[in-house]
């Protein structure tokens, strides 16, 4: 498995566990359009995307490479507070192991929650994730 695939899988495990702990199941995709097209009866749904930047050259022939990504959650008819708690739980789980099991040196994450259209009752949560590794 590629390094970026391993990072994505580690985050996917955290997202799945966050829902399992709450007694729910979540569908997960890497297709960004799926967050808009997934049927309501298949919510909650998560999209996890990662991309790798060009490595940065450092002294002593080291390189720093960053993998940046985003987790987008969509849920039906829940409160903003509930989504906020879910996103925070995922962020806390990531910060409890900021190396993602040794895959990277460090992880940062920023969370946000939006309500798209009150009429469709879908609430979105986002978590921007940045990982870095020096090798």
């Amino acid at each position: 498995m590629s390094r970026i695939g391993a990072i994505r899988e580690a985050v996917e495990t955290i997202v799945t566990a966050a829902y399992t702990t709450g007694g729910e199941a979540v569908t997960i995709s890497s297709d960004p359009e799926s967050i808009e097209t997934v049927p309501k009866d298949q919510l909650p749904h998560a999209v996890i995307l990662f991309a790798e930047d060009d490595p940065e050259r450092l002294a002593f022939k080291q390189q720093r490479r960053r993998v940046n990504g985003q987790v987008v959650l969509a849920a039906f008819a829940i409160s903003r507070e509930t989504m906020d708690a879910r996103i925070e739980a995922i962020r806390d789980a990531i910060f409890s192991d900021v190396t993602l099991g040794g895959l990277v040196n460090d992880v940062t994450a920023e969370a946000g929650v939006t309500i798209s259209n009150p009429e469709d009752s879908i609430v979105y949560g986002t978590l921007d994730i940045s990982t870095e590794e020096v090798f």
Binding site: L58, A59, F60, Q62, R64, V134
Partner: peptide
């Protein structure tokens, strides 16, 4: 004299 420590990547 000794300098302040510096860090670059893992060094």
């Amino acid at each position: 004299e000794i300098s302040d420590g510096e860090r670059e990547g893992n060094v």
